[in-house]
Amino acid sequence: MASSPFQRRRRESGQAAVEAALCLPLVVFLILGTLQLFMLLQARILAQVAVYRAVRAGSLNHANCKAMTHAAVVTMLPTVDATPTGAKLAEAFRERSDNRLRVRGSSGKLFSEGPMVEIVRESPDVGWVRGLAGGEDLLFDAPTDSAAELRRRTLEIRMVAWYYMRIPFADWVLNRMFLAHFKLKRYTAANPLMPAQKNAGGWDDGGVTLPSGGWPGGDLGDRMVQWSAQGHYLFPIQVHAAMRMMTPVKATYFQGGAACGLHSF
């Protein structure tokens, strides 16, 4: 028996509702995820600028950690606060001059325990700096062709800038993906399409290990997992820069070692 046009419209309407319910979460994630990824890309670009400004500040200030950290923090401020004017930038820096993020996530929770940047000086060598007569490189202006001497007069740093993801839903999903990619936490315990399949989030054939040695705040992966469990989703952006020293290095700025302390400001 043929159905009436009204009945056909009701069936089609119900089918459209089911299809929309199935597709809507994916569409929402695609929109929010794309936005979050572009913001992460912006943070990556700012981190590259920040490490350059940090190494330049260090080359002009005897490899002083405070000068380098402040230069990097100022550059990274647009990732955590609105800085459209000089006054807003100054206010944002005043709140984070101690190198603390202090940012509210998508859930409204205030995060303040993590640093904005962490800096490690790869060159000059700490042992050589501490052994300088008078605590300063007295031969800084002497011409030399020695590769070893040139390296000692080159400030080389590696830096991690912590980016806080704040786009709702996308921050959680991307964080779980990053944790699985770095072999820190399995994305899922079972395949949702095949419940009988175990360890669907395995990484035997993929993923990379997150380099984390020597950072001032400790292991990067451990902190990512710890903060994720608290509802804070952060991603460590690792960058590197080097520049010829413009001022002689001073041993007083290397008493704490190669890493720049997080609580010295």
Rank of each mutant, 00 (worst) to 15 (best):
G134R: 12
R104G: 03
W203A: 14
A242R: 09
N175W: 00
P195L: 10
A57I: 12
A196Q: 14
P192H: 11
R152M: 07
L139N: 14
I31A: 13
S212V: 00
M68I: 10
G217S: 09
G108M: 13
A17H: 02
L220G: 07
P124L: 11
Y233P: 00
G131T: 09
P25D: 06
E91T: 14
A21F: 07
N64H: 10
L89K: 08
M39V: 04
F29D: 01
R8M: 10
A142I: 12
A2I: 06
H70T: 13
H232A: 14
L220W: 11
V103M: 01
G221K: 01
D81F: 02
N199D: 15
R153K: 10
G217R: 05
V208A: 05
C260H: 03
R104M: 04
Q7K: 14
V49K: 05
E122Q: 11
L262Q: 02
S228M: 01
C23Y: 05
Q15P: 04
T83M: 13
L174G: 01
Q255E: 14
L155Q: 01
N61C: 03
A43I: 08
A142V: 02
G108W: 15
L60T: 08
R94I: 01
S146A: 08
G14F: 05
M246R: 15
E95L: 15
E118P: 01
S146P: 07
M1R: 10
G261P: 07
N64R: 06
V239P: 04
P211C: 14
N61M: 07
A190S: 11
R94G: 11
R176E: 15
A47M: 15
G231V: 00
D171G: 10
V28T: 09
R104S: 01
A17K: 00
Q226P: 02
A196I: 04
L32G: 03
Q230M: 00
E19K: 04
K250Q: 09
N175V: 00
V129C: 02
E149Y: 10
A16S: 07
N61V: 03
S106Q: 12
A189Q: 11
D81E: 08
R223K: 05
E12A: 15
G214I: 12
T75N: 05
R223T: 02
P211A: 00
A67L: 09
D204L: 01
Y163A: 03
A47E: 03
F235T: 06
H62D: 15
G217N: 13
W227L: 07
T75S: 08
I157K: 07
G214P: 09
M245L: 15
W172Y: 13
D222A: 08
E149K: 11
L262N: 01
G207W: 06
R44Y: 15
P192Y: 08
M194V: 12
V208W: 00
R96H: 07
I31W: 11
M194F: 11
M194R: 11
